[in-house]
């Protein structure tokens, strides 16, 4: 019996390791390619690790194009849209869960329906609308679009999280003498931290990786976002400047990874906070 259990654990762990390798391989390949010379990238017998490490692609990316400016633009629109999405979705979700109304189901239904529309369908009317209010080719306009684009799904996520918190916890706090504000900030918020972390991460990464809105709405080169900038390394008929593209992609991944590392602490903090806390 124990042997069978050990065997099944080995199989499960083996599968997990294979899955992790499968997930990590493209990342390792991109990182390795960013340190290979162009000749090595085009070599007919490729190796995973670079045979001779070169920083030429990083130098070319840093000196040549507007990577850091576009990265800054992405950080600005990503951060501001994330803050607004979280600020709007938390109270909205709380109100929808705790204050029952006949429109709640309709709102939730509309949130789901709004996710069905493809970007291309809304692009032209959205562009015309933004143009009339002078927000095309501005980071403000793009941020606004990202807020509107992420908000329904984040609200949906937050709605689920708030709903999973028993109302008895709030009632107990009220019996202990807490007012509504204290209930929200001392009882509810610690429990919602993982949800806020997940929503913030989702919102930021959506904005960070978004390409089409940024491509169409931003006309000035100085306002290009990172994804639009990265696309300029690709050419016609499947060609690309592979080395610089790999180097730029590695640099572009760093903020997302850092954000995840930072928010990970929130996830764990949130899980052990709240009702079960001594």
């Amino acid at each position: 019996m124990i042997k069978r259990k050990t065997f099944s654990q080995i199989v499960i762990h083996g599968l997990i390791i294979l899955y992790i390798i499968f997930l990590l391989f493209p990342l390792v390949w991109v990182i390795a390619s960013s340190f290979k010379s162009t000749q090595e990238i085009y070599s007919g017998s490729p190796t995973i690790l670079p045979q001779q490490v070169t920083f030429d692609h990083y130098r070319s990316v840093i000196n040549g194009q507007q990577l850091f400016r576009s990265m800054w633009n992405s950080v600005v629109v990503g951060t501001v849209s994330t803050i607004f999405v979280v600020l709007l979705s938390v109270p909205a979700a709380y109100a929808m869960v705790r204050y029952k109304s006949i429109v709640n189901n309709g709102i939730l239904g509309w949130i789901l329906v709004s996710q069905i529309f493809p970007v291309i369908l809304v692009m032209i009317p959205l562009y015309v609308l933004l143009k009339y209010i002078g927000l095309t080719d501005t980071l403000t306009g793009l941020t606004l679009v990202y807020i509107v684009w992420s908000l329904p799904f984040v609200l949906w996520m937050m709605h689920g999280y708030v709903k999973s918190i028993p109302i008895e916890l709030e009632e107990a706090a009220v019996i202990d003498g807490a007012n509504r504000t204290q209930v929200i900030f001392t009882v509810l918020m610690p429990l919602l931290l993982p949800a806020i972390g997940a929503s913030a991460l989702f919102s930021f990464i959506s904005a960070w990786n978004e390409f089409f809105f940024a491509l169409v709405l931003m006309k000035s080169p100085a306002l290009a976002t990172l994804q639009v900038e990265l696309a300029t390394y690709t050419g016609m008929e499947g060609q690309a400047r592979t080395g610089p593209l790999a180097a730029a992609s590695v640099i572009a991944t760093i903020p997302s990874v850092l954000l995840f590392v930072f928010l990970r602490r929130w996830f764990t903090t949130g899980l052990v906070s709240g009702a079960l806390k001594g």
Binding site: Y127, V128, V216, K219
Partner: peptide
């Protein structure tokens, strides 16, 4: 002249939306 770097993969979408919205290069 303002130089704008386009890309082959997205040029069609970029131009079609430009033509339709009137905000053209």
């Amino acid at each position: 002249i303002e130089y704008i770097q386009g890309t082959w993969n997205s040029a069609h979408d970029y131009l079609i939306t430009s033509f339709e919205t009137g905000d053209v290069p």
